[in-house]
Nucleic acid binder design. Structure first.
Lengths: 341, 341
DNA sequence: CGTTTTTCCGTAAACGTTTACGACAACACA
DNA sequence: TGTGTTGTCGTAAACGTTTACGGAAAAACG
């Protein structure tokens, strides 16, 4: 059915070795021969069998992005996703690598899927997202010596891997600054209950800024819940006591913000009127919500592209002449002022 | 580094053939031996090298989903995506198949990427989305004899492949019925300008329903544009003439609807008050938009799961004892009444 | 006990590549 | 002419599996 390198060689009356060398651009092949091989390859539309190549070279020429829908994403759709992936794939494609996104079932935290990818050598490296403070995936990969990069930092695995993260601490801090400048003193914070690292960073920034402004941190104004709309809906009322209510809320996640706003509305509290709302990571939903939510926006597509570069720079096979190096970056979030604060 | 079947065999003092047979559950291996092999495999955490397996078996054990972001998706995020993929991956995982999402750059219509996947035999079959009326990808795959299934129908490639589609014709028709029942007579329709098949189906349903109600189809009330927010924004004014304006609009796409509503708002026409709006494919954005948009909702996760089943049923290697069969289904869309109509 | 069947396992080929190695011819140089 | 160099190509091994085949031992059977 599909043509192999043997067909090509037979068709040209030369050996498969020469065909392979011609195709791979090696120097020791006559210019004429190379030309003939390339033409014949196009004509028979031959492309080397990936399994054969991988087996021989010990490299799959593909990078796996471990993607794990959270429970609730089925209704939500995770709009964060496509722009980042588009950049990531572009960054790898430039170096001839395929991006494969490896999915698991929602909620099972990838460990099993990750092991499969690594142990069956389906990819040459992996990209992790949703990093946790203590992340067993990172521990596993470092222990196994398998190359990877992360979107987000972690305390696991020291700092011996490339990582690209957003400055959630600064964003949390800036959100407080902005609210305080507008006269707010009682500011609530809502974040995911998982060990997700950005939740910790955000809260650190929030706390620091409050102290800087001489405002005492009130534990009653901090809550966490499931990282989805239902989580926000469920947990928001907890930071809205009957008396001495907060006048502002910062949500660490867009889905939680939407659920939270629903809860507020049901309590008769109008976001943007009776209470100020700021969201840390902007998505299209923040823009279309009513009132449009003030939010901090990441530049996802460039981030994807950059993380691909960073991972490749750490791999001996792809690093430049100066050798592999570990790059770690923290990117800013840009405040998009809208109507909700 | 990574352990091979040879290591395992040496460790157990048996031949690699026996190891392989034990691992693959063949009958001709002693129960004791099998037990020992399985334990040793777990202990050395051995998993068969995929490249080796694929090469020998001529099968990659993976299915490629061709995903192609449209221009504009970088801001939009395509929320359709994750729920469908989650179901798709679940359906394949049950049969031991990996789903790999093969991405290309935005806008270049996959043909190149598809060829690469097929010719380098990176997957055993592919799943196509965004089918067009005349779809060169389908032509290519049928001509090449490469197995595939589609989300959406097409006129290409006869009907010799499994396909799962939504009943856009019925939805278009029901949308008109609903609007007419509420007293509307001048109803505009906006759809994507690409040859996307669902755009044709929608319009057919729209036309049929109008005629059924004795309403003449006015070409001035039908327009098409880019399938994104900018497209909707740009094209909606064209169906809003100064006199004899439509009192309702049906959008064939959520992103276009959001852009269209923005254009309407700028013209001083309030969706849900001054004009009725219905969207054919619901996404979370329709729910959160203000006014919340009445829309037709697909059940994406079950669709993904079902399409996986259907593709597998068409493959000799996975079909049941009754042999492979081509299943084609059309699923209904459920009307979610909200505030905009 | 002899013969047949069954159970279990080892051997070796094959999948499609890439690449180290060596061979051969042509050429340059002294 | 002899020696070394360069350019080009063929040969064959190797990557890690799976599997057809055959054989030896054990079991079943008469």
């Amino acid at each position: 059915m599909a043509s192999s390198i043997h067909d090509l060689a037979r068709h040209l009356n030369i050996s498969i070795g020469t065909v392979s060398r011609a195709l791979n651009g090696r120097a020791d092949v006559n210019a004429d021969t190379r030309q003939r091989v390339l033409e014949a390859a196009k004509q028979l539309n031959y492309a080397p069998n990936q399994s054969g190549r991988s087996l021989r070279q010990g490299a799959t020429h593909s990078i796996a992005f471990m993607m794990q829908p959270h429970p609730g994403d089925l209704e939500y759709g995770e709009p964060f996703f496509i722009p980042f992936l588009t950049g990531l794939q572009a960054g790898f494609a430039e170096r001839g690598l395929d991006l494969i996104v490896a999915m698991g079932a929602p909620g099972d935290y990838q460990q099993e899927r990750l092991r499969r990818v690594v142990e069956t050598r389906r990819a040459d490296a992996v990209v992790l997202a949703w990093t946790r403070r203590e992340d067993e995936r990172i521990d596993y990969l470092t222990e196994r010596g398998f190359p990877f990069a992360t979107l987000g930092r972690s305390r696991s695995g020291s700092t011996s891997y490339p990582s690209l993260d957003l400055d959630f601490e600064k964003a949390g801090s800036e959100a407080v600054d902005r609210l305080v400048a507008r006269g707010h003193r009682r500011i609530a914070a809502i974040r995911p209950s998982l060990d997700l690292n950005f939740g910790h960073l955000f809260l650190a920034g929030y706390r620091k800024a409050l102290r800087r402004h001489g405002i005492e941190v009130d534990p009653a104004l901090i809550a966490d819940g499931f990282i989805n709309e239902a989580g926000g809906y469920q947990v928001t009322p907890r930071v809205m006591p009957a008396e001495d209510r907060p006048t502002a809320i910062i949500f660490n996640n867009d889905a939680m913000a939407l659920g939270g706003c629903k809860a507020l509305a049901e309590m008769g509290i109008r976001p943007g009127h009776d209470i100020a709302v700021i969201v840390i990571v902007d998505t299209p939903l923040c823009r279309y919500f009513s009132p449009a939510l003030t939010a901090f926006r990441p530049s996802l597509e460039p981030m994807g592209r950059r993380l691909a570069e960073m991972l490749l720079a750490s791999l001996p096979a792809f690093a430049g002449p100066e050798g592999p190096r570990i790059i770690r970056e923290v990117w800013p979030l840009e405040l998009i002022a809208r109507e909700s604060d």
